[in-house]
Design a protein around this nucleic acid. Structure first.
Length: 222
DNA sequence: TCTGGATTCTAGCGGCTCAA
DNA sequence: TTGAGCCGCTAGAATCCAGA
């Protein structure tokens, strides 16, 4: 039930200004009144759309996961959303695995693109005044560590002069890289931030267009 | 089986943002 | 300026579930 009791309407600065004015029965309703009366309907439709889509999502999920509807009488909305996220993540991994299988060079392209991005960040920071040196160093070190988790390059990549100093850290006995699954290799156990999704990675057609055949794959251009 | 607390869902509302 | 849409708050209804 609404928070308001019928006899005690909540004050509304905008609606109160005009709706409070007296009008004769034949006068058209004021804009504020019309708005006030139509809003609950709009909100109702909106909630209906949400629920309808959630219901469709649930049936699609149960179908995709081969789960009997009767196995669990009702999935909560939060469950539906969680299962959707997991299912999409698993689909993404399957796609990336297939892409890597069909074109093993794609990881190298991604790594080269990441490397170029790192160098560009370094160039940009070098031209930025007011960025503390330790902040710059930490940021570049973090990006370099991310690059390292992708695994070593098959052949040494040419480094921009300013990034050469980072290279020892890149290859300095880092733990094995996580599975390359189209997600930025940033997340650590317990990390609060969600992994950054790299759209279109799995869909990158080998050798297609300017980004094929050895060209570095640049996530930021997609 | 009943009951009471916990959890989840639903709906109305005000306030805010943003595009037209 | 205005209308549409989104979001958070609130409170009642519905459902679940453990314990008596």
């Amino acid at each position: 039930m609404p928070a308001d009791t019928p006899g005690k309407p909540r004050a509304s600065p905008r609606a109160g200004a005009s709706a409070g004015a007296s009008r004769t029965p034949n006068q058209p309703r004021s804009v504020a009144e019309h708005r006030k009366s139509s809003k609950p309907v709009m909100e109702k439709r909106r909630r209906a759309r949400i629920n309808e889509s959630l219901a469709q999502l649930q049936s699609l999920l149960l179908d995709a996961l081969r789960k009997e509807s009767s196995r669990r009488s009702k999935l909560e909305k939060a469950d539906i959303l969680e299962l959707t996220v997991r299912h999409l993540q698993s689909l993404r991994r399957v796609q990336v695995t297939a892409a890597l299988r069909s074109d093993p060079a794609i990881l190298g392209k991604y790594r080269a693109g990441f490397h170029e991005c790192l160098a560009e960040v370094n160039r940009f920071l070098a031209g930025c005044e007011g960025v503390p040196a330790d902040v710059r160093s930490r940021l570049l070190g973090h990006l370099a560590a991310c690059l390292a988790r992708l695994g070593p390059a098959r052949r040494p990549l040419p480094l921009a002069p300013a990034t050469e100093a980072l290279e020892p850290e890149i290859y300095a006995g880092r733990p094995p890289p996580p599975a390359f699954d189209g997600l930025c290799p940033l997340p650590r156990p317990g990390a609060a931030l969600a992994p950054i999704f790299l759209p279109g990675l799995a869909l990158a057609a080998p050798g297609a267009g300017a980004q094929g055949q050895g060209a570095p794959w640049r996530p930021w251009l997609r």
